[in-house]
Design a protein around this nucleic acid. Structure first.
Length: 277
DNA sequence: ACCCTCACCTGCACGC
DNA sequence: TGCGTGCAGGTGAGGG
Protein backbone atom coordinates (compact mmCIF):
# COMPACT_ATOMS: atom_id res chain seq x y z
CA UNK A 1 0.00 0.00 0.00
CA UNK A 2 2.28 2.74 1.10
CA UNK A 3 4.77 5.15 -0.33
CA UNK A 4 6.14 8.03 1.70
CA UNK A 5 2.93 10.13 1.97
CA UNK A 6 0.81 7.17 3.00
CA UNK A 7 3.38 6.21 5.63
CA UNK A 8 3.53 9.81 6.83
CA UNK A 9 -0.23 9.84 7.27
CA UNK A 10 -0.13 6.60 9.25
CA UNK A 11 2.53 8.21 11.42
CA UNK A 12 0.45 11.34 11.97
CA UNK A 13 -2.51 9.22 13.06
CA UNK A 14 -0.38 7.10 15.40
CA UNK A 15 1.23 10.23 16.81
CA UNK A 16 -2.23 11.44 17.82
CA UNK A 17 -3.19 8.11 19.36
CA UNK A 18 -0.17 6.57 21.02
CA UNK A 19 2.27 8.84 22.90
CA UNK A 20 1.67 8.49 26.61
CA UNK A 21 0.12 5.06 26.20
CA UNK A 22 1.89 2.11 27.78
CA UNK A 23 2.58 -1.23 26.17
CA UNK A 24 1.70 -3.69 28.92
CA UNK A 25 2.77 -6.67 26.86
CA UNK A 26 3.82 -7.41 23.30
CA UNK A 27 3.26 -10.56 21.32
CA UNK A 28 5.22 -11.44 18.21
CA UNK A 29 2.89 -14.03 16.77
CA UNK A 30 4.69 -14.49 13.50
CA UNK A 31 8.39 -14.66 14.37
CA UNK A 32 9.50 -13.92 10.82
CA UNK A 33 7.96 -10.46 11.10
CA UNK A 34 11.01 -9.57 13.20
CA UNK A 35 13.75 -11.90 11.96
CA UNK A 36 16.49 -10.30 14.06
CA UNK A 37 14.83 -11.25 17.32
CA UNK A 38 12.52 -13.88 18.73
CA UNK A 39 9.14 -13.70 20.45
CA UNK A 40 10.61 -13.96 23.94
CA UNK A 41 13.12 -11.15 23.46
CA UNK A 42 10.59 -9.04 21.59
CA UNK A 43 8.16 -9.30 24.49
CA UNK A 44 10.85 -8.69 27.09
CA UNK A 45 12.12 -5.52 25.48
CA UNK A 46 8.74 -3.94 24.92
CA UNK A 47 6.80 -4.90 28.03
CA UNK A 48 5.73 -2.16 30.37
CA UNK A 49 7.14 0.65 28.32
CA UNK A 50 5.47 3.93 27.57
CA UNK A 51 5.36 5.19 24.01
CA UNK A 52 7.15 8.50 23.68
CA UNK A 53 6.76 9.41 20.01
CA UNK A 54 5.91 8.14 16.56
CA UNK A 55 8.00 9.44 13.68
CA UNK A 56 9.21 8.33 10.29
CA UNK A 57 12.35 8.03 8.18
CA UNK A 58 11.67 7.16 4.55
CA UNK A 59 9.01 4.48 4.64
CA UNK A 60 10.05 3.26 8.11
CA UNK A 61 7.81 3.98 11.08
CA UNK A 62 9.73 4.74 14.27
CA UNK A 63 8.02 4.18 17.59
CA UNK A 64 10.16 5.46 20.42
CA UNK A 65 9.68 4.03 23.88
CA UNK A 66 10.67 5.24 27.27
CA UNK A 67 13.92 3.78 28.46
CA UNK A 68 16.07 1.92 26.02
CA UNK A 69 14.21 0.62 23.00
CA UNK A 70 12.70 1.80 19.74
CA UNK A 71 10.41 -0.24 17.54
CA UNK A 72 10.95 0.17 13.80
CA UNK A 73 8.23 -1.02 11.41
CA UNK A 74 8.16 -1.24 7.65
CA UNK A 75 4.69 -1.82 6.21
CA UNK A 76 5.99 -3.07 2.86
CA UNK A 77 3.00 -3.88 0.66
CA UNK A 78 0.18 -4.75 3.00
CA UNK A 79 1.15 -3.94 6.59
CA UNK A 80 -1.44 -2.04 8.63
CA UNK A 81 -1.93 -0.90 12.17
CA UNK A 82 -5.24 -1.02 13.95
CA UNK A 83 -6.33 -0.02 17.43
CA UNK A 84 -8.91 -2.40 18.86
CA UNK A 85 -11.04 -2.51 21.96
CA UNK A 86 -11.45 -5.50 24.22
CA UNK A 87 -14.71 -6.45 22.50
CA UNK A 88 -13.15 -6.58 19.03
CA UNK A 89 -11.60 -9.73 17.63
CA UNK A 90 -8.18 -9.93 16.05
CA UNK A 91 -8.31 -9.88 12.27
CA UNK A 92 -6.67 -12.46 10.07
CA UNK A 93 -2.90 -12.01 9.73
CA UNK A 94 -2.45 -10.29 13.09
CA UNK A 95 1.30 -10.85 13.26
CA UNK A 96 2.06 -8.64 16.24
CA UNK A 97 -0.19 -7.51 19.06
CA UNK A 98 0.59 -4.83 21.65
CA UNK A 99 -1.66 -4.82 24.68
CA UNK A 100 -1.98 -1.26 25.91
CA UNK A 101 -3.26 0.24 29.11
CA UNK A 102 -7.04 0.54 29.28
CA UNK A 103 -7.74 -2.78 27.58
CA UNK A 104 -7.00 -1.50 24.11
CA UNK A 105 -4.57 -3.16 21.80
CA UNK A 106 -2.51 -2.09 18.85
CA UNK A 107 -2.49 -4.79 16.20
CA UNK A 108 -0.16 -5.09 13.25
CA UNK A 109 -1.77 -7.05 10.46
CA UNK A 110 -0.13 -7.99 7.21
CA UNK A 111 -1.82 -10.12 4.64
CA UNK A 112 1.19 -10.60 2.39
CA UNK A 113 3.71 -11.16 5.20
CA UNK A 114 6.25 -8.75 3.72
CA UNK A 115 6.25 -6.27 6.60
CA UNK A 116 9.19 -6.07 8.98
CA UNK A 117 9.79 -5.04 12.56
CA UNK A 118 12.97 -4.45 14.44
CA UNK A 119 13.64 -3.48 18.04
CA UNK A 120 16.78 -1.38 18.33
CA UNK A 121 18.49 0.68 20.97
CA UNK A 122 17.23 4.23 20.73
CA UNK A 123 20.76 5.54 21.14
CA UNK A 124 21.84 3.68 18.00
CA UNK A 125 18.65 4.19 16.01
CA UNK A 126 20.18 5.92 13.02
CA UNK A 127 23.10 3.52 12.94
CA UNK A 128 20.60 0.81 12.07
CA UNK A 129 21.56 -0.29 8.57
CA UNK A 130 18.13 0.19 7.02
CA UNK A 131 17.95 3.79 8.16
CA UNK A 132 21.61 4.66 7.74
CA UNK A 133 21.69 4.05 4.03
CA UNK A 134 18.54 5.96 3.10
CA UNK A 135 18.77 8.96 0.78
CA UNK A 136 17.83 12.40 2.16
CA UNK A 137 14.19 13.07 2.92
CA UNK A 138 12.57 14.53 -0.20
CA UNK A 139 11.27 17.58 1.69
CA UNK A 140 14.60 18.34 3.35
CA UNK A 141 17.14 20.86 2.10
CA UNK A 142 19.53 17.98 1.48
CA UNK A 143 17.32 16.84 -1.36
CA UNK A 144 18.72 19.66 -3.44
CA UNK A 145 19.00 20.10 -7.17
CA UNK A 146 22.72 19.47 -6.84
CA UNK A 147 22.08 16.28 -4.91
CA UNK A 148 19.61 14.89 -7.43
CA UNK A 149 21.82 15.93 -10.33
CA UNK A 150 24.80 14.12 -8.86
CA UNK A 151 22.76 10.99 -8.26
CA UNK A 152 21.36 10.95 -11.79
CA UNK A 153 24.57 11.86 -13.58
CA UNK A 154 26.44 9.12 -11.77
CA UNK A 155 24.10 6.34 -12.81
CA UNK A 156 23.63 4.37 -15.98
CA UNK A 157 20.32 2.96 -14.83
CA UNK A 158 17.05 4.20 -16.19
CA UNK A 159 15.38 6.98 -14.21
CA UNK A 160 12.38 4.91 -13.20
CA UNK A 161 14.38 2.28 -11.39
CA UNK A 162 16.66 4.92 -9.94
CA UNK A 163 13.65 6.66 -8.41
CA UNK A 164 12.66 3.42 -6.69
CA UNK A 165 16.11 3.02 -5.14
CA UNK A 166 15.66 4.25 -1.57
CA UNK A 167 19.36 4.93 -1.20
CA UNK A 168 19.18 7.40 -4.09
CA UNK A 169 15.76 9.00 -3.66
CA UNK A 170 13.82 8.08 -0.58
CA UNK A 171 10.09 7.64 -0.19
CA UNK A 172 9.17 7.31 -3.86
CA UNK A 173 7.42 4.08 -4.84
CA UNK A 174 5.94 2.65 -8.00
CA UNK A 175 2.97 5.00 -8.27
CA UNK A 176 4.70 8.28 -7.49
CA UNK A 177 7.59 7.37 -9.79
CA UNK A 178 5.27 7.21 -12.81
CA UNK A 179 3.34 10.28 -11.68
CA UNK A 180 6.43 12.42 -11.11
CA UNK A 181 8.01 11.47 -14.44
CA UNK A 182 4.79 12.37 -16.22
CA UNK A 183 4.66 15.80 -14.60
CA UNK A 184 8.32 16.43 -15.38
CA UNK A 185 7.82 14.99 -18.89
CA UNK A 186 10.67 12.56 -18.58
CA UNK A 187 10.86 9.25 -20.42
CA UNK A 188 11.20 6.50 -17.81
CA UNK A 189 13.58 4.56 -20.05
CA UNK A 190 16.15 7.36 -20.16
CA UNK A 191 19.32 6.84 -18.21
CA UNK A 192 20.16 9.25 -15.44
CA UNK A 193 23.08 10.56 -17.49
CA UNK A 194 20.79 11.60 -20.36
CA UNK A 195 18.57 13.97 -18.42
CA UNK A 196 19.01 17.72 -18.72
CA UNK A 197 19.46 19.87 -15.65
CA UNK A 198 16.15 21.58 -16.39
CA UNK A 199 14.34 18.24 -16.40
CA UNK A 200 16.09 17.20 -13.20
CA UNK A 201 14.84 20.39 -11.57
CA UNK A 202 11.34 19.64 -12.83
CA UNK A 203 11.57 16.09 -11.52
CA UNK A 204 12.58 17.27 -8.07
CA UNK A 205 9.61 19.63 -7.97
CA UNK A 206 7.28 16.94 -9.31
CA UNK A 207 8.28 14.44 -6.63
CA UNK A 208 7.39 16.97 -3.96
CA UNK A 209 4.20 17.96 -5.76
CA UNK A 210 2.74 14.45 -6.05
CA UNK A 211 3.63 13.69 -2.46
CA UNK A 212 2.12 16.94 -1.26
CA UNK A 213 -1.17 16.21 -2.95
CA UNK A 214 -1.62 13.03 -0.94
CA UNK A 215 -0.35 14.62 2.27
CA UNK A 216 -3.03 17.28 1.97
CA UNK A 217 -5.71 14.63 1.61
CA UNK A 218 -4.50 13.09 4.84
CA UNK A 219 -4.31 16.34 6.76
CA UNK A 220 -8.01 16.63 7.61
CA UNK A 221 -8.75 12.96 7.64
CA UNK A 222 -10.92 11.32 10.25
CA UNK A 223 -8.96 8.55 11.98
CA UNK A 224 -10.25 5.06 11.34
CA UNK A 225 -9.02 3.00 14.26
CA UNK A 226 -9.61 -0.23 12.38
CA UNK A 227 -7.28 0.86 9.58
CA UNK A 228 -5.04 3.62 10.78
CA UNK A 229 -4.19 6.10 8.04
CA UNK A 230 -5.87 3.83 5.56
CA UNK A 231 -8.80 5.89 4.36
CA UNK A 232 -7.04 8.85 2.80
CA UNK A 233 -8.74 8.55 -0.54
CA UNK A 234 -12.23 8.23 0.92
CA UNK A 235 -13.98 4.98 1.56
CA UNK A 236 -12.71 2.55 -1.01
CA UNK A 237 -12.33 5.14 -3.74
CA UNK A 238 -9.11 4.98 -5.73
CA UNK A 239 -7.40 8.32 -6.19
CA UNK A 240 -7.21 9.93 -9.60
CA UNK A 241 -3.67 9.38 -10.73
CA UNK A 242 -2.46 11.14 -13.85
CA UNK A 243 -1.00 8.05 -15.51
CA UNK A 244 -0.75 5.23 -12.98
CA UNK A 245 -3.13 2.38 -13.75
CA UNK A 246 -4.57 4.32 -16.71
CA UNK A 247 -3.37 2.12 -19.55
CA UNK A 248 -5.38 2.95 -22.70
CA UNK A 249 -7.01 6.04 -21.21
CA UNK A 250 -6.30 9.44 -22.75
CA UNK A 251 -3.30 11.46 -21.60
CA UNK A 252 -4.45 14.50 -19.65
CA UNK A 253 -2.16 16.74 -21.70
CA UNK A 254 -2.41 15.42 -25.27
CA UNK A 255 -5.21 12.81 -25.21
CA UNK A 256 -3.09 10.05 -26.69
CA UNK A 257 -3.48 6.72 -24.87
CA UNK A 258 -1.38 6.08 -21.79
CA UNK A 259 0.80 3.02 -22.18
CA UNK A 260 2.08 0.49 -19.67
CA UNK A 261 5.58 -0.90 -19.87
CA UNK A 262 7.49 -3.19 -17.52
CA UNK A 263 10.78 -2.17 -15.94
CA UNK A 264 12.53 -4.43 -13.47
CA UNK A 265 9.40 -6.54 -13.34
CA UNK A 266 7.18 -3.62 -12.32
CA UNK A 267 4.64 -1.57 -14.23
CA UNK A 268 5.47 1.91 -15.44
CA UNK A 269 2.80 4.10 -17.00
CA UNK A 270 3.60 6.93 -19.38
CA UNK A 271 2.51 9.03 -22.32
CA UNK A 272 4.73 8.33 -25.31
CA UNK A 273 4.05 11.77 -26.75
CA UNK A 274 4.54 13.93 -23.67
CA UNK A 275 7.42 11.88 -22.31
CA UNK A 276 9.46 11.40 -25.46
CA UNK A 277 12.62 12.66 -23.78
C1' DA B 1 30.26 -0.63 -6.95
C1' DC B 2 26.75 -1.61 -9.64
C1' DC B 3 22.74 -3.86 -11.65
C1' DC B 4 19.42 -7.57 -12.58
C1' DT B 5 16.36 -11.38 -11.35
C1' DC B 6 14.15 -13.80 -8.06
C1' DA B 7 11.95 -14.63 -3.75
C1' DC B 8 8.91 -13.55 -0.08
C1' DC B 9 2.96 -14.09 0.57
C1' DT B 10 -2.25 -13.78 -0.12
C1' DG B 11 -6.06 -12.30 -2.73
C1' DC B 12 -8.39 -10.45 -6.56
C1' DA B 13 -9.77 -9.81 -11.38
C1' DC B 14 -9.66 -11.83 -15.56
C1' DG B 15 -10.42 -15.35 -19.39
C1' DC B 16 -11.57 -20.01 -20.60
C1' DT C 1 -18.80 -22.50 -10.76
C1' DG C 2 -14.04 -23.52 -10.95
C1' DC C 3 -9.42 -23.24 -12.29
C1' DG C 4 -5.32 -21.21 -14.18
C1' DT C 5 -2.82 -16.81 -15.00
C1' DG C 6 -1.12 -12.48 -14.00
C1' DC C 7 -1.09 -8.74 -11.21
C1' DA C 8 -0.71 -5.83 -6.73
C1' DG C 9 1.48 0.82 -3.83
C1' DG C 10 8.27 -3.09 -1.35
C1' DT C 11 12.67 -4.61 -0.72
C1' DG C 12 16.90 -7.99 0.21
C1' DA C 13 19.68 -11.72 -1.07
C1' DG C 14 22.39 -13.65 -4.40
C1' DG C 15 24.33 -13.77 -8.74
C1' DG C 16 26.73 -11.71 -12.80
Amino acid sequence: MPELPEVEIVVQCLERLLPGRTIRSAQLRRPRLAPDTNPRLFAARLRNSTIVSVTRRGKFIILKLEKRWTLITHLRMSGRFMLLGADQEDPKFAHAVFHLDGDERLVFRDQRHFGLMKVVETAKLFETKDLAKLAPEPFSNDFSLDYLTTVLKRSKRNVKQLLLDQTKVCGVGNIYASEAMFIAQINPLRRGTQISRAKIAALREAIREVMNETLELGANMQIDRANIGGNIYGSGAAPDWRVYDREGSPCLRCSKPIVRIVQGGRSTYLCRVCQRK
